Simulated assay, not measured.
Amino acid sequence: MDDALGAVVVVVPVRNEEKLLGLCLDHVRLAMEQLHRARPQITVNLTVVLDQCQDSSALVAASHAARDKRITVISVDFGSVGSSRASGIENALAALSSCVPPDRSLHETWIACTDADTQVPAHWLTRTVELAESGHDAVTGTVEPDRNELGETLFAAWRREHRSHEGHNHVHGANLGFRASEYRAVGGFPPVPVDEDVLLVDRLRAHGARILATGQLHAITSGRIQGRVGTGFAAYLHSLDTGTSTQTGRPNS
Rank of each mutant, 00 (worst) to 15 (best):
T231S: 12
V76I: 10
V120E: 00
P101H: 02
L199D: 12
Q247V: 07
E90S: 10
E166F: 06
V10Q: 05
T248R: 14
S97N: 14
R127G: 03
N45I: 03
A156M: 11
V9M: 04
S134E: 13
Q119T: 07
L35C: 01
G151N: 04
K19R: 13
E17Y: 00
R29Y: 02
L25W: 03
W124H: 06
R250D: 09
F178N: 03
R179C: 06
E133W: 08
L217K: 00
S105G: 12
G249V: 00
G88K: 06
H162S: 04
S181T: 11
P102E: 05
A138K: 00
V100R: 14
A94G: 10
P145W: 09
P13E: 03
R85H: 06
C53W: 04
V44H: 01
T43C: 13
S84D: 07
V229Q: 15
T47P: 01
T221V: 04
T248H: 13
Q41N: 12
G6S: 07
P102G: 04
D68Y: 08
H123K: 03
G151P: 07
V49A: 07
V73T: 08
A95C: 09
N45W: 05
A92N: 10
R224F: 06
L176V: 15
N45F: 03
H172V: 07
E17F: 00
V139M: 12
T221H: 12
V9Q: 09
W110S: 09
V9L: 12
D117H: 07
S222M: 01
R184I: 12
L59E: 14
A122M: 08
T72V: 01
D103Q: 14
L106F: 10
E130I: 02
R210T: 15
S56A: 15
A58K: 05
R127I: 08
A138T: 02
V201D: 04
S63T: 11
P251K: 11
A116V: 10
S97A: 15
G187D: 15
V8N: 02
A94N: 13
E133A: 10
L204F: 12
R184N: 08
M1L: 14
H64W: 11
I42E: 02
Q216H: 06
N45D: 08
R203F: 14
R203V: 08
I74P: 12
V28R: 00
H172S: 14
E33L: 08
V201I: 15
N148T: 03
L25Q: 06
R159N: 07
E108S: 15
W124S: 02
A31V: 03
P190N: 13
I42S: 04
R163H: 14
R184D: 14
I220T: 07
H162F: 08
L200E: 10
V49W: 06
R179F: 10
R159G: 00
A156C: 13
A58N: 02
L237H: 05
V12C: 02
T109E: 07
S181D: 14
P101T: 00
V14I: 11
H36V: 10
G230K: 09
L35E: 01
R159W: 01
L106G: 11
A86T: 09
V186Q: 09
S83I: 00
H36K: 07
A157V: 01
R205F: 10
C24Q: 09
S98N: 12
